[in-house]
């Protein structure tokens, strides 16, 4: 079975055919070659595959591509603004919030959603808000710092 879907990915309209069992992350990585989004587990826990679906952070390994029909998808490749880095990307760099870089895309996408959603971002709120993303390298210390830094810079920006 093959289904025709249309969705917007990083601002570009995509019309394609997928089989129902294709997950959104497979569509992104394998069909659209957007390999910045990664797969780190098969039980929907690690969050490496996090993208924004209609403005909300979701685990793209746990969404069928057909479910994204008619939606807007934003991936790590689509958040930089006018050739510059998104404040969250810049903050991860400034604060050494990444090491191996594998969880980073998902972590940044979750962090952007968190900052957009929550007004009062103390350390505990940030840590709780990132509980759906596992990082094995950083011990989260510098990720928390990065989110704090970006939150300051994203104020008043609204959703990306």
């Amino acid at each position: 079975m093959s289904i025709d879907i249309t969705l917007t990915v990083n601002g570009r309209e995509i019309n394609t055919e997928v089989s129902p069992e294709t997950t959104l992350v497979q569509l992104l990585r394998e069909h659209l070659l957007l390999t910045g989004t990664h797969v780190g587990c098969d039980t929907s826990q690690c969050g490496a595959c996090t993208v924004h679906l209609d403005g909300r952070a979701v685990k793209s390994c746990t969404v069928l591509a057909v479910q994204a029909d008619g939606s807007e998808v934003t991936t790590i490749e689509g958040i930089a603004v006018a050739g510059g880095l998104h404040p969250m990307q810049a903050a991860f760099h400034q604060c050494h919030g990444l090491q191996c870089g594998f969880c980073t895309a998902g972590m940044i996408m979750s962090a952007i959603d968190l900052v957009t959603r929550e007004d009062d971002l103390d350390e505990a709120t940030i840590r709780k808000g990132l509980a759906g993303n596992i990082c094995r390298c950083t011990g989260y210390h510098n990720i928390v710092k990065a989110v704090q830094m970006a939150a300051g810079q994203m104020e008043g920006r609204g959703h990306e």
């Binding site: 790590i76 760099h93 940044i108």
Partner: peptide, 12 residues
């Protein structure tokens, strides 16, 4: 090395 990872351009 950060730039390629924070922009999704790493090559794993």
């Amino acid at each position: 090395e950060d730039h390629r990872f924070i922009t999704g351009n790493g090559r794993f």
